[in-house]
Amino acid sequence: MITLKSLHKSYVTGNNSLHVLKGISLEIEKGEMVSVMGASGSGKSTLLNVLGILDNYDSGEYYLNGMLIRDINETKAAQLRNRTIGFVFQSFNLISFKNALENVALPLYYQGVPRRKRNQIAMEYLDRVGLKDWWTHLPSELSGGQKQRIAIARSLIGKPKVILADEPTGALDSVTSMEVMDLLQEINDTGITIIIVTHEHDIAMRTQRSIKLKDGVIETILYHKSTYKAVSSF
């Protein structure tokens, strides 16, 4: 599903250049659930942004679903994000003036799905994350866990192949965190690849393997026995 070959990325600010990803090579199979760990500033979010085509990289190769992602224009990137990638963020990133239903339906708006149809589909996804009765609520009227479930419903509605989650439980208490993980696990069970950036071990333990970053390179890859799917592709 995802192939990285000695990927490099630097941030250039003024005269300074900060080399963040220093040659990442990685293969993630379709249907895998992977966690990315590492100290703060080790480049986890940077990696995830590159994977999500939210940011570009300097050298190396990135194949998404067999397609080389390099120098693609913004329009193409937007379409790829819309059709193949779902995002879940630590700070939810819901649109504040839109209610739960409208937030969930928005990716379908950019797919050109008519309003009535997309609202109907959004309702189904809200039902799936257990928030059907909350569809009229604005993000400000929802709890953190509810907001994250709305965000997950939104990431799912475009029928993506990959879900990229940057610290999805970072702003949630442990009980809510586990509920969100249950939901992600359910989604993964339907065959959608999931990559989760996290600091928490018990979150990482629920994925099939953990990729640990240190100073811009992969330090270790940990396979978790507890998961039923054993993957040994790297």
Binding site: A78, Q79, R81, N93, L106, Y110
Partner: peptide, 16 residues
């Protein structure tokens, strides 16, 4: 800005 970023992340093209 933030709203536009969100829209772009979920598939808004520059033209849109």
């Amino acid at each position: 800005t933030k709203e536009i970023g969100i829209r772009k992340a979920i598939g808004a093209t520059p033209l849109s």
